[in-house]
Amino acid sequence: MARDASRDVGGVPVELLGDYLPLLADAAASGRRPDARELDGVGLLGRRAAELGVSAGSAVQLYLSAARRLWQQLPAVVRSRDSEVVRTAAAAVLHVVDEAVARLVDGYTDARRQMVRWEETLRREFIDDLLRGDADVAGLAERAVPFGLDMGRHHQIALAAPSSRSDEAGAAVGALERAVVQWGGDRDVLVATKDGWIVAMTPADTDVPGAGTLGDLLLAELGRLPRGEPWRVAVGRPYPGSYGVARSYEEAREGLTMAVRLDLDNPLIRAEQLLVYRVLLRDQPAIADLVQSVLGQLVRARGGAGPLLATLDAYFAAGAVTAETARRLHLSVRAVTYRLNRIATLTGYDPTDPAQRFTVHAAVLGAKLLGWPQRDLPADR
C-alpha cells in the first residue's frame, strides 16, 4: 500500500510515511486521535522530506494518496453496510489526515527556512572571502562550484551605489539579479549586497550583441526602479582566478570612492578611466607635498581655500575658458578673473599660464583625492 502510494507520486521515499498508515487505521477502527508525540514524529518526517529535496507538494500528495488507498481497504468500510459506521470512520480518518498533513508541512517549512538561512550564511561567507582575496585558493574554487562559478575564467566586478539611502541596495538586488542572469546566463554570475552596495560578477567574455556592457545594464535596470534615487556604477577590469575577482572588486570599490571625492558627473565609472588618479595616490606623501606646496597658501584667503579651490576645479573642467567657468559657477567673468588673479598672488602659480597650468591642475586633483581642505593632509612619514 505504501509503495503503491509512493509510485502514485513519482517514487517519493516510502520512509516519509513513518507510522502514518497505522494512525489512520487506528482512527478508523477506534476513532482515536493522534497524540502530541505522534504528531511530532510526523513533523520530523516533514523535515526529512526537505532534507531529501522532496517538494512540499509531493510530500502532501504522498500522504493523501496513502490515505485514499488505505480507505479503500479498511475492513470497517469494505464490509460494513451501516452508513453511520462509515461516516464515523471517515470523520476520524479525515481528522488524522488533516492534523498529520498540517504537521508535515510545518516541519517541512521549518526545515526549509533553516536551510535557506544556512545557505545564505554560506553564500555571504563565500562572497566575503572571494572579494577579500586572502582565502585559500583551492578551497574557494571548491566552494564556488555550488554557486555555478568557474574560478578558472576571467571575471569582472561591478559595484552599484545609491546616492544616499543605503537601504536601496537590498530592495534593488532581486530585480537586478534577474536582469544580469538574463543578460549573461545563469553560470558564472553572482549578484549580492555588501556594505550597502550591490555587487555583480560576470564572466569577462560575456558578449551579448546590442545589450551593451555590464555597467550599462546595471544603470539601465536601476533607472527603472520606482522611487529610486540616482545611482553610480563602477566597473573593475577583468582578471583570471579568485585573486582576479578580488582585484577587480578593489578597482571598482576604489572607483566609487574616487568618483565621490572628485565629484564626477558621469554615473558610469570604468577602472581604466581612473588610472591617472591611481598614479597620483600611489605616493601619498608626494602628492600631499605637492598640494601643500602649490595650494597651501589658499587657506589665507577670505573664506578659506574652499571657494578658490572650487574655482580652479571648474576652470580646468571648462578647458581653461573663463567665460564657461563663470557660467558653471554662476558668477560674472570679472569675479572669476579676480579669483584666478588672487590664486596666482597667494600661491605664486598662475593657472592661466600654460607652463604652470599642469602643476596647478595636478595639485587640485590631489587635493580632491585627499579630501583637502576638509581633511588634514597626511603627514610625511
Rank of each mutant, 00 (worst) to 15 (best):
A271I: 05
V294M: 00
A288F: 05
S55A: 11
T311Y: 11
R68W: 00
G215Y: 02
A220T: 09
V199M: 04
N266K: 12
P226L: 00
L159T: 03
I198L: 09
V78C: 00
T257N: 14
A211D: 08
R253K: 12
S164T: 15
A234K: 08
V360Q: 01
A144T: 02
V116E: 15
V180Y: 01
D205F: 09
R79D: 08
A5K: 01
G228A: 04
F126A: 06
P230C: 08
A138T: 14
A335F: 07
G366E: 00
S242G: 14
D376M: 14
D106Y: 12
S163R: 15
P373I: 10
A50Q: 06
V137Y: 11
Q284F: 02
V78Q: 00
P307E: 07
D106C: 13
V14N: 08
L290I: 02
T359W: 03
V116D: 11
W372Q: 09
A28M: 03
P354R: 08
P238Q: 06
Q356H: 10
G174R: 12
A141K: 06
V9C: 00
A363Y: 01
R253E: 10
R153D: 06
A100S: 13
Y277H: 14
R300N: 11
I343S: 06
V233D: 06
Y239Q: 11
A323T: 15
P267A: 08
P240V: 11
F147M: 09
G139N: 05
E15M: 15
Q292R: 13
M151I: 04
T193D: 04
L377R: 02
A344F: 04
E250I: 12
Q72P: 00
E38I: 05
A50V: 07
A50K: 06
S58P: 11
G210A: 11
A49H: 06
G210T: 09
L23C: 10
P267Y: 06
R7C: 04
R81K: 14
E221R: 13
D82Y: 01
Y20W: 12
A66S: 05
H95E: 10
Q273L: 13
R33H: 08
F126Y: 05
R300Y: 05
L331C: 13
V199F: 03
R270P: 06
A91E: 09
V199W: 07
D188W: 06
A28V: 05
L159Y: 05
A204Y: 01
M258G: 04
V54Y: 07
E250P: 04
T359D: 10
R247N: 07
G212I: 03
E15T: 14
R342D: 12
A220Y: 08
R81S: 12
R68A: 01
A28N: 03
V54K: 02
R3N: 14
L329C: 10
V54E: 07
G148I: 00
T352L: 08
S80Y: 00
G10Y: 02
T193M: 07
P373E: 05
D195R: 14
S166P: 15
R68N: 00
